[in-house]
Design a binder for these strands. Structure first.
Length: 926
RNA sequence: GGGCGCAUAGCUCAGUGGUAGAGCGCCACCUUGACAUGGUGGAGGCCCGUGGUUCGAUACCACGUGCGCCCACCA
């Protein structure tokens, strides 16, 4: 016996264990089963489940369960990401909180050990939470970006790309994070508008030179007034960088400065002279039109400096403190960049060289993890030639090998891919994949998968260069003093290993059967915010490294489904600092995993963010309860699944009808899931379960089950059980727990729902006649109920019904379903008559008239008013349609069906209007 | 500066070239033998504005208004 209500807390863990033990999560090896593969977007290994994960994994699990039931060999590949910066940051913070030695005090080896400990401690959390959500990943294949196999894949990719010239080392400006003291990629920089200032300085001309500077102009733009200047005016938002200026640039067409181009000005404080040059970069209409060029601390200036061979002055150390360099005045050395700024502005002002300070909104770059202002710095880093790799990644999408759903993300993808910059992949961190590069004593770099190979390369190289064996031995092995080859200290960007995920997790570089079977993967499900970080890079790497038998590159996915962000009720992004984070696990505790999953799926409409409200989760919890109670009803009435039952064999119109409806629902859910329209799929099964099965079928079946003959009773029991089973199957991708629980409770049978066969649409099960008959009955009941309320008939009172001059078909239908109409519309008796009794309330239903003879009970005046309203409504509709039909071009140009439909509607309204008029006439004398 | 998206019931959102929908909320009634986490009935909408395409536009197109997001080096 089913309990009175469903208790998710006790059922979920039990069911999950049973699924896992059954092996259902592993791909089937059924012969001929088509592979279906999803790789999970790997969550951070030490992270915990947030609402974005909940949505992401709900959708993946829905697809995976759906395809598994359709008989495919499904692999949902799970795993986690080592999340370089994020994880290192967490551990460093822990050390600080516990007042333990800092990262640097511990040293690299100890620290990395410490991070592994933290991973061991907290690494299982996210997987436990995914299990609570019901995620049916193949846990036996769990991977981690820093496990042995994946690390080997990283090394191999790095070495090969290096050999191909697609990875190289270069000294150029990078985004430097002074908090973590590492380079980061462009994508990890967030540009934010902040309140800043615009400082205008005078740079005096060398040797006291002067020139005439125009300060007023006539309408034609000719100068009318001049002043004599002995300086050039520049403006900056970052005064502290002036110490590194190498030139002042003006636009070649800027006549104002023509007299001093080629001359030099004094760089105040630094007391150096710098040239005044021309370049296209300065905008004559902006500021003074003259730009200071600080090549080592500004990306634009860097380009100009490179072009004109202007000296670069590095100003800051890794923590963005002013360097101890001879071109920096002593008083600023060691100051933080913002302290230096203050001092420099004050000193310029003291020398009378500060013209003015303006308030100005400026775009400032911040590190997305650290939150500190990013400093452009000149450093040696490793780069991936993304432009070259992007070419195939672009064409794979252009050619339709991979498609984005919704399709509009294609544009975003292209836009970024077509303007891609070199990808800086080295990070000055300790947690991650250390770059497989070793340096010899002469600084030469050897890139190899192992130190052993690097040594071999080194020996070969130095031997070829003419060193003696003994010398080479010393250079490479450093007899007695430890190895002289020193390994590159840096680690790789986390996204480097993530980029290999679709093939590294399947076994690459080994040629495993899994790789062969499950690459390319079928669908990637992810949020748009990591299209650039992750999707684009997987496309690049997949297409570069994975080839088919003929050697053609193979993209890692067929479909990339991009889902929404989950926002709070007000449409705000959830964040810890805002305090509006909704914890999915709390919702699971409170309402069950199914309710949360259904909420997310039902709201996952393409192209729109999800605003999550708890009320909605509660509503879907109620939906589960509703289903549970419908199942209890079935159980109480001995509706037991009969495996030999053929739903196409039913005789009763009611049963034919529910079979017909269930079949239609299967088609809707299937088509919606195939098209990634999760909300439509969820909506279809919701509607069928509640509004068709519970609201009508269960109610309509009662007379058959309670009072029907044996044959009718038996057929209805089997049909009810079949329909409920059908619901459980269609619901399973969204509400796996409750559906599995009911499946297990309702029949003694082998196997679990998770492995049951998905109901395909079956034309044999359609019955338009039964649908018409039952819809007629249902609508009649609704019409009577509606009138009852309108005339304030007490809900408990049974009233008589008179059917007026029914046609043959109506008579037959009423004869067949009179019992249930009486029951659900609370009728005392159904009579037939040629005319409606005097003073009765009359219902016009589908062209027929039904009367409730309640003379003396009803308010005649109100009833007359009601009928008049109905007559007017019909007349309005008729007028509207007539206007259409009178339009010659409508009749001539609209499709024949549409015109016909309008005519039919007109007739219906006309007939209805007539009936209402007759009804009104019958009340005339009262 | 470039790109994308949104505007429909009180709220949150589906949707369609021809009759406007859901959930929640609201009102009234109901302990009817699955379910009050429920049932029945109901109220509530110039489908943002203007113009165009069309026999017909809430839907397609253009412009406008308002809001949101992404990318970008104006010192």
């Amino acid at each position: 016996m089913l309990e009175k209500s469903y208790d998710p807390a006790s059922a979920e863990a039990r069911l999950y264990d049973a699924w896992e033990k059954s092996g259902a999560f592993q791909p089937s090896d059924a012969p001929g089963a088509e592979p279906y593969t999803i790789v999970i977007p790997p969550p951070n290994v030490t992270g915990s489940l947030h609402m974005g994960h909940a949505l992401n994994n709900t959708l993946q699990d829905a697809l995976v369960r759906f395809e598994r039931m359709r008989g495919k060999s499904v692999l949902w590949q799970p795993g986690t990401d080592h999340a370089g910066i994020a994880t290192q940051m967490v551990v460093e913070r822990q050390l600080q909180e516990r007042q333990q030695p800092s990262r640097r005090e511990m040293g690299r080896e100890k620290f990395v050990e410490r991070v592994w400990e933290w991973k061991a401690e907290s690494g299982g959390t996210i997987f436990r939470q995914l299990r609570r959500l019901g995620a049916s990943c193949d846990w036996s294949r769990e991977r981690f970006t820093m496990d042995e196999g994946l690390s080997a894949a990283v090394r191999k990719v790095f070495v090969q790309l290096h050999r191909e010239g697609l990875i190289y080392r270069d000294k150029r400006l990078v985004n430097w994070d002074p908090k973590f003291e590492t380079a980061i990629s462009d994508l990890e920089v967030e540009n934010t508008e902040v309140d800043g200032h615009f400082w205008h300085f005078k740079y005096p001309l060398e040797n006291g030179e002067t020139y005439e500077f125009p300060i007023a102009f006539d309408e034609e733009g000719n100068a009318t007034e001049w002043e004599t200047r002995d300086y050039i005016s520049i403006a900056t938002t970052r005064p502290e960088t002036m110490l590194g200026d190498g030139a002042v640039a003006v636009h070649p067409s800027d006549k104002r400065y023509a007299p001093i181009v080629g001359k030099r000005c004094l760089l105040p404080l630094a007391d150096r002279y710098i040239p005044i040059i021309t370049d296209d970069y300065p905008d004559p209409d902006f500021g003074s039109g003259a730009v200071k060029i600080t090549g080592a601390h500004d990306f634009n200036d860097y380009k100009v400096a490179k072009k004109h061979d202007i000296k670069l002055y590095e100003l800051m150390d890794t923590k963005a403190r002013m360097l101890d360099a001879d071109y920096i005045p002593e008083k600023y050395r060691g100051l933080d960049r913002y302290e230096a700024r203050k001092e420099i502005v004050a000193d310029i002002d003291a020398r009378g060289l500060l013209i003015k300070v303006e308030d100005k909104k400026i775009m400032q770059p911040f590190g997305d993890r650290s939150g500190v202002v990013i400093e452009p710095m000149l450093t040696d880093q490793w780069y991936v030639d993304a432009e070259t790799l992007a070419r195939r990644a672009i064409s794979a999408v252009e050619d339709g090998e991979t498609r984005f759903v919704p399709e509009n993300w294609t544009k975003t993808y292209f836009q970024w891919m077509r303007n891609i910059e070199p990808w800086c992949v080295s990070r000055q961190l300790w947690w991650g994949h250390q770059i497989p590069a070793w340096y010899g004593p002469d600084g030469h770099c050897f890139v190899a998968e192992t130190e052993e190979e690097a040594r071999k390369d080194a020996i070969a190289r130095y031997t070829a260069e003419g060193y003696t064996l003994e010398e080479v031995d010393k250079m490479v092995r450093g007899e007695g003093e430890g190895p002289l080859l020193t390994r590159d200290e840096d680690v790789l960007d986390t996204w480097f290993s993530s980029a290999l995920w679709p093939f590294s997790t399947l076994g690459w570089p080994e040629k495993t059967p899994t790789l062969k079977k499950h690459y390319p993967t079928t669908t990637l499900v992810t949020a748009f915010d990591i299209i650039f970080f992750w999707v684009a890079r997987m496309m690049m790497m997949g297409l570069h490294f994975m080839k088919d038998e003929k050697g053609h590159p193979v993209a890692p996915f067929r479909d990339v489904y991009i889902h929404a962000l989950v926002l709070d009720e007000k449409g705000q992004k959830m964040s810890k600092s805002k305090g509006n984070v909704i914890d999915p696990l709390l919702l699971i505790d409170k309402y069950g995993a199914d309710a949360l999953r259904f909420t997310l799926a039902a709201q996952a409409a393409q192209g729109r963010n999800i605003r999550l409200s708890e009320a909605r989760v509660e509503g879907y919890r109620n939906f589960g309860t509703k289903l549970w109670n419908a199942a209890r009803f079935c159980e109480m009435n001995e509706c037991v699944v009969d495996p030999s039952f053929d739903p196409a064999s039913t005789k009763e119109a009611l049963n034919k009808w529910i079979v017909h409806e269930a079949n239609g629902c299967a088609r809707e859910v299937t088509e919606a899931l195939e098209a990634y329209r999760f909300n439509d799929a969820a909506g279809a099964i919701y509607k069928f379960t509640w509004n068709v099965f519970c609201d009508w079928y269960v109610e309509l079946s009662k007379p058959l089950l309670f009072d029907g003959g044996e044959a009718v009773k038996s057929e209805t029991r089997k049909t009810a059980a079949w329909a409920l089973d059908h619901i459980l199957k269609l619901l399973h991708p969204f509400m796996p727990f409750i559906s599995e629980e009911l499946w297990g409770s309702l029949a003694r049978r082998d196997g679990m729902l998770i492995k049951a066969q998905w109901p395909a649409f079956d034309a044999r099960l359609s019955s338009d006649e039964a649908a018409a008959e039952m819809n007629w009955t249902i609508n009649l009941i609704s019409a009577i109920r509606s009138i009852r309320t309108e005339i304030n008939a007490p809900a408990g009172a049974k009233v008589p019904l008179v059917a007026v001059a029914l046609g043959e078909q109506e008579k037959a239908r009423l004869a067949a379903h009179g019992d249930i109409v009486s029951r659900l519309a609370r009728l005392s008796v159904i009579d037939h008559a040629r005319e409606a009794p005097k003073g009765a309330v009359q219902i016009v239903h589908d062209g027929a008239v039904f009367a409730l003879p309640l003379e003396g009970v009803i308010d005649i005046g109100a009833e007359k008013a009601r009928l008049e309203k109905e007559i007017a409504k019909a007349a309005d509709e008729i007028a509207r349609i007539d206007k259409k039909l009178a339009n010659e071009s409508f009749v001539a140009k609209a499709p024949a069906e549409v015109v016909e439909e309008q005519r039919a509607r007109r007739e219906d309204y006309a007939a209805q209007g007539e009936k209402f008029k007759a009804a009104l006439a019958r009340l005339k004398d009262l």
